[in-house]
Design a protein around this nucleic acid. Sequence first.
DNA 1: ATGGTTGCGAAGCAA
Length: 261
Amino acid sequence: MTRPLRVATWNVNSLTARMPRVEEWLTTVRPDVLCLQETKQADAAFPYDAFEALGYQAAHHGDGRWNGVAVVSRVGLDDVVAGFGSDLDVQGPRLLAATCAGVRVHSVYVPNGRSLDSEHFTAKLAWLEGLRQVLADHHDPADPLVVCGDFNVAPDDRDVWDPDHFEGMTHVSVPERAALAALLDWGLVDVFRSCYADGGLFSWWDYRGGSFHRGWGMRIDLVLATRPLADTVTFSLVDRNARKGEKPSDHAPVLADFAIV
DNA sequence: ATGGTTGCGAAGCAA
């Protein structure tokens, strides 16, 4: 069998602060495609040259202090589209698409929502519905496509360390889980979940209170793939090692291997 | 788990 296509996603919580860790990780893990979120950079500050030195092309969509998404690829990077081209873009640079090795790749940073009674929560639901609409309008679930990123939604109760703790909070509420389910219903598979049925497998841990070491996390970083791709998955992993050591992001990268190349 | 940490940017906000 030929080498699989390795796709990864990582909310780096400032690429400026995290670039040494990202370079180290790319060197060891060598994903074919890496989707980044929360670069917190303007396009002009994005380190295109450093990625190129590692053999990667990159596209970035960011405006500075908040948000910012990128697609980094060593298997080609074509037809880059930034944002929605609609009023959803007022929520910041959170969506970037590109075609890599024939796969349409979306890097997404879903709005946090802040709290259930916040206008930002309403905006989060609208953003997720807008993303579903983009897929429905421009793509076919029979085509090879991935949506990777920080969804700021834990798909079900297995994906949080203590469901009772999150009662009344964002990331677990019925409407946002329904918005994520609607996305999946269009024709996407939660690839990591398709490999593991167990709970307690997380991708984000609060910086505060030793949450990582206590196991107080959530699985909110997802690789979603259309069925033709998802059916070829051979391996998926949350790289918890990237959450350890010096200056980690509060998110760990999630990767998935597809046997399509 | 109502305190706690990080990043940005230079105080306070967002996560």
